[in-house]
């Protein structure tokens, strides 16, 4: 099964929120961590902060154009987005979602749909261990180098470095540089003396 996946929901209707929560609770390894009503100012920013694995989004809850909103979400990176929709929802809106949950579907169908999508997404291998490359990059981060400097040193593109960093954050469950520093020092990946003036 691997790690727990976090789910956030954007849905105005309370009964729907509660129903979703009850349904999601029955799927092992999923945890609903936050609901938004759609009224929030800078909703996309709030969603980004959650760093959730899954977003279930009712486009009707949004104050802005759903298509514009989805475009903003694209930049968040790997988060599986489900559109929560009625059968009558126009096809051109449905087509903007890679996965659609139909509100009138049975519980079995809904849960199966979510399971099968998330199953595809789980990659094999151990989720917790950092690869050698990731350890190398973690060290550089802890020593205070910027993504650009790391890219230059290791002859990587900045995009690759960013991807590695996202994976490191996800695997360790630590997001801040100082948190990573504590981890690296505790696990003797770097020594205190190496740190020098690097710590802020």
């Amino acid at each position: 099964m691997g790690e727990i996946k976090t789910v956030i929901v954007v849905e105005r209707n309370y009964l729907m929120q509660a129903g979703l929560e009850a349904m999601l609770m029955e799927i092992p390894g999923l945890m609903m961590v936050k609901t938004f009503t759609g009224d929030e100012v800078s909703l996309a920013g709030h969603i980004r902060k959650q760093q959730a694995d899954v977003l279930i989004l009712n486009p009707l809850a949004l104050k802005e154009d759903p298509i514009v909103f989805l475009r903003k979400l694209k930049q968040i990176g790997k988060m599986v987005v489900f559109g929560l929709m009625e059968k009558e929802t126009p096809v051109n809106l449905q087509s903007h979602f890679s996965h659609v949950l139909n509100v009138s579907d049975s519980k079995f169908d809904l849960q199966n749909k979510i399971r099968s999508v998330l199953h595809q997404d789980t990659r094999p291998g151990n989720h917790n261990l950092l690869s050698k490359r990731e350890v190398t990059i973690l060290k550089q981060v802890v020593l205070g180098l910027t993504n650009q400097e790391i890219a230059d040193r290791l002859f990587l593109s900045i995009h690759t470095v960013t991807t590695h960093r996202k994976n490191i954050n996800r695997k360790l469950g630590i997001k801040t540089v100082s948190g990573l520093t504590v981890y690296a020092l505790m696990n003797h990946l770097v020594r205190m003396e190496e740190m020098g003036g690097a710590t802020k």
């Binding site: 469950g173 630590i174 997001k175 801040t176 100082s178 948190g179 504590v182 981890y183 505790m186």
Partner: peptide
């Protein structure tokens, strides 16, 4: 974020 990290640590 830091609080979250501290929990995991």
């Amino acid at each position: 974020e830091k609080l979250f990290d501290l929990k995991n640590i």
